[in-house]
């Protein structure tokens, strides 16, 4: 016999979860041509692209789920994995690369215990990624922490930026 969990909020929660994607779909008039902006909005709201939402988007737009999956995995900005609370992007454009972005990446990954291809820490606090070029080459090497660009970063500074976040301090730059 299946276990019964008290779940008075199940329905409400779940309707809320899909309500947002419905609003997005309605805004774009369920036009399959607008798949990329739709996925961008979904990611904005859900912080990543949950598979059941993608499936829902596919059926709503009347396109195969495999197509939506194909588009979602093609573009580097889409993530099918939940992202951490804090998002750290290390620029690896030419200027930043020449000025030592690799050392920053390594320092941060080591500090956060990220090994292999992992991008997000187990506690879901941090996601660390490289981006191809932020166009902030004059400030190389550049690091973006939660949408804020930091220029001329050294590995030590990068680590202290993270420490500030872990200690819950407001980033004051």
């Amino acid at each position: 016999m299946a276990g019964c969990a008290c779940a008075s909020q199940v329905g409400a929660n779940h309707e809320k979860r899909f309500q947002k994607v419905c609003e997005i779909l309605d805004y774009y008039e369920r036009n399959p041509r607008l798949l990329v902006p739709i996925l961008q909005q979904v990611q904005e709201v859900y912080h990543y692209l949950p598979s059941e939402i993608l499936e829902f988007v596919a059926t709503s737009l009347g396109v195969p789920t495999a197509h939506v999956f194909g588009v979602a995995t093609f573009y580097a900005h889409f993530s099918l994995e939940p992202k951490g609370k804090h998002h750290i992007k290390i620029c690896d454009g030419t200027a930043c690369h020449v000025k030592g972005s690799t050392a920053i990446l390594e320092a941060i990954r080591e500090k956060l215990n990220l090994s292999g291809s992992a991008k997000t820490t187990d506690d879901m606090l941090f996601t660390v990624e490289t981006v191809s070029c932020l166009g902030a080459c004059g400030l190389a090497p550049a690091v973006v922490v939660d949408e804020q660009v930091h220029g001329n970063v050294t590995p030590a500074q990068a680590l202290s930026l993270i420490e500030n976040l872990t200690e819950g301090k407001e980033e004051n730059q």
């Binding site: 690896d92 454009g93 030419t94 200027a95 690369h97 191809s132 070029c133 166009g135 902030a136 080459c137």
Partner: peptide, 11 residues
């Protein structure tokens, strides 16, 4: 869609 790493003219 200026993507060259190290270029930011269009930006």
């Amino acid at each position: 869609d200026e993507g060259d790493p190290g270029a930011f003219m269009d930006r």
